[in-house]
């Protein structure tokens, strides 16, 4: 075959036809700003950038509460189960104290998980303040599945109380929902690729690619992207 008998017009004709039809669709009222979801710039989403929480010393009930808030907001639940709720990507965290994990070990695990396991896919939460990591550790160390403990069997995880929180509630639920979707949806064909692997812009492209190949709904694309961009 030579270049001259390469019949390039037929595919081109198809391409043009489809693009014209596509453009027609886009022009229809209701589709442009419709539920396509992706039409919105993901950076418009309230990003779960955490404000510094008031300094705190020792495991007070306030710090435990803040720790729980952070745990939900940061999307830890996407990968970790606590009291029967959450993802299965990482270990159940309901019994960290009983496992003998120290305060400093947990701090390292949260800040630089690769120091504990070079191959982990857990994201490094290196940009959290010392107080925030303390709050998270306080929260984790109070958890126990032992009968009789406050978080033991029968304890129902309650959604974080509204008001007076450092983190916008909408971001918390969006990140957590996106994280759960990510954990259940993105490991079906290949291993989960760690959020830390890509920048925000790179994830935008990769998740769009997956929307085309898998395919995903616009809502899944949006939510999963929000989680990945908040956790990288």
């Amino acid at each position: 075959m030579t270049l001259s008998d390469w019949n390039c017009w037929r595919p081109v004709r198809w391409l043009v036809t489809v693009l014209v039809i596509g453009a027609g669709f886009a022009g229809c009222p209701g589709t442009r700003d419709g539920p396509a979801g992706t039409a919105r710039d993901p950076t418009d989403q309230a990003q779960p950038r955490i404000e510094t929480v008031a300094a705190n010393s020792g495991p007070s009930s306030a710090s435990v509460k803040r720790g729980k808030q952070l745990f939900d907001t940061l999307g830890c639940t996407a990968c970790h189960m606590v009291n029967g709720q959450g993802g299965r990507v990482g270990p159940d965290l309901s019994d960290e104290a009983a496992k003998g994990h120290s305060r400093s070990w947990l701090t390292t695990q949260i800040r630089t998980p690769k120091a504990n396991d070079p191959q982990t896919i857990m994201s490094a939460y290196g940009s959290l303040s010392d107080e925030q990591v303390n709050d998270l550790v306080d929260y984790l160390l109070t958890l126990s599945t032992a009968p009789g403990s406050p978080t033991g069997k029968g304890h129902v995880a309650r959604p974080p109380e509204a008001g007076g929180q450092a983190v916008p509630a909408v971001a918390a639920s969006v990140v957590a929902a996106g994280g759960e979707m990510w954990a259940r949806r993105c490991g079906q064909c290949h291993n989960l690729r760690p959020p830390s692997e890509y920048s925000d812009a790179q994830w935008t492209v990769a998740v769009h690619h997956m929307r085309v190949r898998v395919p995903l709904t616009g809502e899944e694309q949006q939510k999963i992207l929000t989680f990945l961009q908040a956790s990288n």
Binding site: P11, L19, A36
Partner: peptide
Amino acid sequence: LTYLLTDWALVGAGKFTVPFTAYHNH
């Protein structure tokens, strides 16, 4: 090239992996 139409539909044209069963595409 693909173009998102709605939350549940997108069109594409060109040379692509044919989504006949999951193997090649996924």
